[in-house]
Amino acid sequence: MKPAKNLPYPFLSLRNIGQLLVALCLFWSDGSYATAPRIAPQMFGEERKADIIAYEIAPLVTTNQTDGGLAIAILSAAFNASGQKLIIDIVPAKPLAKYALLNNDVVAMIGESQDISAKEKNQFLAEAFYLKIGRHFYFKPNWKSAFPWQSSLTDLKGLRYGGLSGTEQLTYKAAGIQTQEGDVRGLFEKLRNQELDFIGVPDLVAEFWINKAYPKEQQEFVSVNGIAWEQPLYIFFAKTNPRSQELYKAFVTGLDKIIKNGKYQEALEKVYGRQQLPADFISRLQRYRANTR
């Protein structure tokens, strides 16, 4: 600011003093916006804090179904049976769910046994509540003669098997089968492109993926009779969370209730249909539940 004309420095005119006051007012005013901020958090509604976190395993755990998929429907039913209404958030990637659990952002996480390391195991209370039923699939156009499966993995000696990352491969290797790991998309694509002879994928996951990615070739992906493997889904409660004991007990009690009153079976049949559902599904699940305690 220049000194006003005809006044010896440091004297200021009234006009200059006014300008200075306005400038000071602006300097000390709160915030740097000429108006309100254009983007405020309130524009997007209230943020809901989740109690439980899960990662997407379509169609078992998915944001694309209103009930969150079969596994989430069972989980919710179990909590509801104990009078607990919880917020379950489904994130698109496993590391984000694990992060929320380790960071104590949530009470519990839904996942598989390999999601928790041996070192971390003591930090969580685990309860199995669903079984992924693995089945073998081959691609019919790649087989001029019949697929050589009869009853045992040794029938498939010398073939190339693809399993989901982190799933068991040793029994295949022991039977003389070459093994590869991958994700669902990669396994199906390699199967179709003759880079693999057969793959092992959970039945509902396979059905979902075939319908989505190969709608015109659904009949060409053939499921081999019999269960290839099974893998439980767990809910892991963080012991350090003050609500974990209460919610763990509520969940176990609720799960017992829905198994007993037939609601669990109903939920399964709604998705599977009676034909494909293994008759002993619940007794298989109970074995895992007993083992985790």
Binding site: Y55, P92, A93, K94, P95, L96, D183
Partner: peptide, 11 residues
Amino acid sequence: RQMYELYQDAG
């Protein structure tokens, strides 16, 4: 690398 892993997981 971490973003790649998240992208892979999330399809």
